[in-house]
Design a protein around this nucleic acid. Sequence first.
RNA 1: GCGAAUGUGGUGAAGUGGUUAACACAUCUGGCUGUGAACCAGACACUCGUGGGUUCGAUUCCCAUCGUUCGCCCCA
Length: 429
Amino acid sequence: MPTYQLQRGTYDAYDDDALNLDKLQEILKATVSLYGFNPIITPIYEQTELFTRSVGESSDIVNKEMFSFVDKGGRNISLRPELTAGVMRAIVTNKLYATRDLPLKYYYCGPAFRYERPQQGRYRQFTQFGVERVGVTSPLDDAETIIMGYSSLLMIGFPRVTLKINTLGDEKTRDNYRAALKEYFAPHIASMCEDCKRRFETNPLRILDCKDPQDREIIAKAPSMSEYLSDEEKAYFKVITDALERFDIPYELDTTLVRGLDYYSHVVFEYHYTSDDGTNLGAIGAGGHYDNLVSEVGGPMLSSVGFALGLERLNSLLKEIKQEEYEKPFLDCFLIYQGEECQTVAFDLAMMLRFNGFKCDLLYQNKNYGAQLKVATRKMTSFAIFVGEDEVKNHRFNIKNLETQEQEAVAYDDLVAYLDEHLEVHHHD
RNA sequence: GCGAAUGUGGUGAAGUGGUUAACACAUCUGGCUGUGAACCAGACACUCGUGGGUUCGAUUCCCAUCGUUCGCCCCA
């Protein structure tokens, strides 16, 4: 027999991991639905060009991290490295911008693929949750989206989240700034690190992100974005930061924050989690405003704002910091029996209880009472119901409360009522 | 793509160039064929990620490969 290995950068989630991932999605969906966001589901692969056009030719994501292939019909296909591009395409394909009220408010949740070096909480197939608000007309659209993301992260259990935020201005402002940066860095670039040399050619804004201490000295004297922002752009940004202040959201203006995707303009932001000892554990979510993504894929000019979160990364961080666990699965009752005749009765009884809405389980393995009871305990069961010969004969079943050890006999016809009454307490706490 | 560490049963983990690979937990069986515990007895790795090489002999040494983890790059 060949043995099949888990593919690099993929994972199997089960038990707590699967439960937590599931729960995470549930909470995120519930939170954004408070703001009127609805789900949108798009394919996990698209034609490659959609991503090169929208995500940007200069980004590493497109350059070296895409899972691309040619299908049997000769089409160039890529697994999506992020979900925004597909959502934009869907909006244009289905002309949603013309037939629905603006702004469109969609959330998405699903797998994305990037061929990169796996690390903890970071996989080649990972799950992104995110939102897109398309057709924004006010900085309040941006502010509301940013606050919604912040609040979502608190809802899933992060004790504190800080926001890094910056404004890039519109496309023209950014082009001017980019030109100014190139001019400034040109005489220095020979002495800077290899990455910066590359970035100088592909995307000079990203040089501002460099962590090399020597480069940082040069960067510190570089022209600042704010010198190139118009009054309107500054005013737009101020509406957003004012809103953050009204809600006491801790934010930090970071003028070196530029993000890796080419399509952002105006406001960009990252959510960071800082541990008790003050070390920044990195971005746990990020997003920004973009003006020409819809038009880039064939629709009208529509300003938009969105953010994305990586569920695996959230999950692995939460595992270390969260004191309270999400509710564990449990069973209302477990049927315990011995012998073939009793098995049939137990089977039928289990079905009856399930039809009445009780979580119920039993084994078909010929185990003795002790072993069955042990399994029931392990599965976090509230009541064990004994289905023995006496019970079958008398139509009365011994029900044992596995927590209190109390046991009493209940007639078949009274079982549902009995469980309803005794589980009520359990279900409401 | 670059640098480093690591890989022994279901789990945690010890160990050695050479007859049966510790120990603990979990699991299973029996003592106890209608009640979860405890106790007692017993079972449980044709094999030490995979493939080569060195050797009379390798889980142990060497090489390659794959996976995992950490740092860089990038990013969710």
